[in-house]
Design a protein around this nucleic acid. Sequence first.
DNA 1: CAGAACTATTTGCACAAGCAGATATGCCGC
DNA 2: GCGGCATATCTGCTTGTGCAAATAGTTCTG
Lengths: 155, 155
Amino acid sequence: MGIQDDAAEIRASGWRTLAALHGLIDSALEKALQAEYRLSVVEYTVLEALSRQDGWHMRMQQLARAAALSSSATTRLVSRLEERGLLGRYLCADDRRGIYTELTPQGRELLRVARPLHDATLEATLTGAADVPELAPLVRALHDLEPAPASPAGA
Amino acid sequence: MGIQDDAAEIRASGWRTLAALHGLIDSALEKALQAEYRLSVVEYTVLEALSRQDGWHMRMQQLARAAALSSSATTRLVSRLEERGLLGRYLCADDRRGIYTELTPQGRELLRVARPLHDATLEATLTGAADVPELAPLVRALHDLEPAPASPAGA
DNA sequence: CAGAACTATTTGCACAAGCAGATATGCCGC
DNA sequence: GCGGCATATCTGCTTGTGCAAATAGTTCTG
């Protein structure tokens, strides 16, 4: 049984490291984007996901998966961004249950100006994490990953 | 400028992968622990962090760092667990601002029975993620990490 | 020792998230 | 075309979170 325990402890330890690094990056991005552009990380993620779509539009549920949110949370998130004029909703003709969201010019513009801060914060946080002994190996591993396709979670 | 953009896109892509895997594991653990033991992932994390401490006690702020929570969230989390009899609060003699929390026997018992489900869920989720092309490399990288010391975030 | 500056914890408040249920639409067999 | 079932989105409600301010205790300075 010792062998099983060891394997479980290795996984648990890896999970703790993953969670720690995730939390570090997430809160750094959250603070930076919130302070400068009044955007949460999920909101940025949604804008960014939309910008990577051909035609810049997506259905609510695709969005929910891309942002790892429930559909109710997605509804409200889209409503918030819509009220700020960053994206628009419109019915889709072929399936009238579905609703497409589309980036407005203002949404694209906000993303354009926010992206440098996002990227710089990400870089700075990763650099900082590389100096923390417990996180460094994971940071290196991340760096060595092959660039993943557009939507890791959207499959 | 193309080179910088590439580097930024590699980091962004790694971050998306990290977030996706984190979300996957987190929600799987959340559902499993919540359904069986009425414990959230953070609550489990706190119990587990306490169990790894010599003497099973920690100050609120250590706990806050270990769980990556604000101090107010920590206060309420500890209150919830205290009401369920899983841990106790007591003043610490040398610094009377500080409050120690300590696992009760019931807390240790709950952790003992919950840990197998936690570990099994973690294993199952990682195994599942290894079949998702975008996540597989990160899963492998995690597995190859050297076992990190007790508290990756607590430093 | 008095007062200022700092640290630890708790409370008031506002907000975003999930679940369950409601509503509308699509699809299938008959 | 009609009931029955699945899918997409939205709404009501509860809960957990962070920020800012309040409170209590420590430490440093003169």
